[in-house]
Design a protein around this nucleic acid. Structure first.
Lengths: 252, 252
DNA sequence: GTAAGAATCTGTTTTTTCGCAGGAAAAGGC
DNA sequence: GCCTTTTCCTGCGAAAAAACAGATTCTTAC
């Protein structure tokens, strides 16, 4: 017997279930769900596994990976609290991607059958999840496509901004709320470790960031945005060309 | 007054509306929809336009584009009969991508308000569209991510296979059911026209394809798959390493 | 605290890709 | 059909990125 928290008392208020299900269905789901805990570095599922339902991230950070040539890991997407992983496919489909916890992470697993019933009985749940996927699709399409045309310098600046968007910045010192290795940054940017290291050094010399071991402080966000901006006017329009509010001025 | 075809008598049976709406709702939608015709090369919407609803492709081919650096067009996605374009966003959102007809194309436009009502009253419609987006998202993520790590040669082989997947092959001569310029192929592969031209010449010399002007015959599909395979074992597993049924043998 | 191992950094070489220039071929308009 | 315009093709030099090798620093286990 699982010792499930009832969704009604769950702290995660950005959860799709919590936001879009009737009280009645929240009770059904509370009974049916499997609450899972993963330690940092642990696999949630592996490439090729069959997935039997949806995982809702209750609290934590997850990387979605896919292995390319030479068994080289590539980070396909990052997911945080409130996101859904394990897109529901047909039952016979296997899933060519894996998911790994980037820090201690808590998930709620829902079986496909229950999920389906929940969808049929909670139109707003289905609708909001559809909007989520639609929005993610649009963002992914544009982001990845532009990535294909960018120089290394632009790719890495873009990756730092992506990390800021997903994980956020510490409001005290301006550091990214995520600790990734240089290797992982390379796997997101789609380049080699050496290039990431070189470019981060350049960014530091240009007073755009400050390196403190693996911790990265985004010292001049607008400066980074300017590097990527020609490719992403629409994505970053709210932040550009607005003057830097901190008074910091990046290298032109 | 529009002279709308009633959905019940529409020839496009892969349409989401036709497959997943009640008869009652099909009538409502038949009244509400706007049927639109676009000539080859015509814009359906432009980058930055506000989109007020969904476009269902009744018949035709469409490219979704996004402008990057130097006003260089990039093809973000291709869509054909049965697909949906103009992902519904919030009303205030503008849409940083454009859509252009690749051949004479017929669309059904549905206003956001009607679409929303249809979603709330046809759970299977919402569900199937959610699955569509979810599946597109997964495919896009993996495809684009692998593209980032591929060599030019691999990118272009992958693009040819993508075109085959979307548009299909003529069963008589094995040519792609789509006529794209070298420029457009470059915009899909994420490289320059020159590289596309060079690589297509190489592929022809290696007896993988046959060029006939803009028409491209995929002479040895398995050979192309082998070029990309290390990156895409899962995507192409059904076609690889199955022996070539035509008896053609590509260069090893 | 120490030592082993892993990750990070830097200089150099090699490979790949880009992009111009100019000629050939094809597509489209009349 | 013919002519104009666009697209396609090829070679070459420049630039960018990747790959390698070795030194240094940081982690982590004991």
């Amino acid at each position: 017997m699982e010792d499930n928290i009832n969704c009604a008392y769950c702290n995660n208020k950005v959860c799709f279930i919590n936001q879009h299900c009737s009280v009645n269905w929240m009770n059904i789901i509370s009974e049916a769900k499997n609450q899972l805990w993963y330690k940092k570095g642990q696999y949630i599922f592996r490439e090729g596994d069959r997935i039997f339902g949806l995982y809702f991230i209750e609290r934590g950070k997850v990387k979605i990976i896919s292995t390319g040539l030479n068994n080289k890991e590539q980070i396909v997407r990052l997911a945080v609290t409130g996101h859904v992983i394990g897109h529901r496919g047909e039952n016979h489909e296997t899933y060519p991607i894996g998911a790994v916890a980037l820090e201690d992470t808590q998930l709620c697993f829902l079986d496909n059958d229950i999920v389906y019933e929940a969808f049929m009985n909670n139109p707003n749940l289905t609708f909001s999840l559809m909007m989520f996927y639609s929005s993610e699709l649009r963002k992914t399409e544009i982001r990845e496509r532009h990535l294909a045309q960018m120089s290394i310098r632009e790719k890495i600046a873009d990756t730092l901004l992506y990390l800021k968007e997903i994980f956020g910045m510490n409001s005290t010192d301006g550091s990214l709320n995520a600790v990734l290795s240089r290797q992982e940054i390379a796997e997101i940017a789609g380049t080699s470790v050496e290039q990431v290291i070189r470019e981060l050094t350049d960014f530091e010399n240009e007073k755009l960031i400050i390196k403190q071991g693996r911790k990265i402080i985004l010292f001049d966000v607008d400066g980074l945005v300017r590097i990527v901006a020609p490719h992403n006017k629409n994505r970053y329009s709210s932040a550009w060309p607005r003057p830097n509010r901190n008074g910091f001025l990046g290298k032109q």
